[in-house]
Amino acid sequence: MVPLYMAFLVGGLLCVIGQIIMDATKPTITPGHILVGYITGGAILSGLGLYQPLVNLGGAGATVPLSGFGHLLVQGTLKAVEQKGLLGAFSGGVEAAAAGITAAIVFGYVVAVIFNPKG
């Protein structure tokens, strides 16, 4: 089990990197760019085999940030490729990330039905 403080440190550092990028490039890089950048960066690092060590070290500190979501997509794809070959390249990523994506859509919809935007 990864100790809590390691998750705090790794997760906190990943967020600080995002903050530095945003503040240094204001106004070019928006939160939307950060989301895309982290998922893309995480996926590429994961494909190169460089993200797993970070996950081993920081646990949720590496998987909860969106880069971890990119890692999940790529690892799911690679696993599926081993089992199914070419088809796996297309099915594996979404299968691995299905729970998160579905949760986001469904909770997003439900919240929109229940609440009104403030202001």
């Binding site: 945003m22 204001k26 106004p27 928006t30 939160p31 935007p117 403030k118 202001g119």
Partner: peptide, 11 residues
């Protein structure tokens, strides 16, 4: 700009 409930820091 952004949807009003998105957590975005203002410059």
């Amino acid at each position: 700009r952004f949807p009003t409930q998105q957590g975005v820091q203002k410059a």
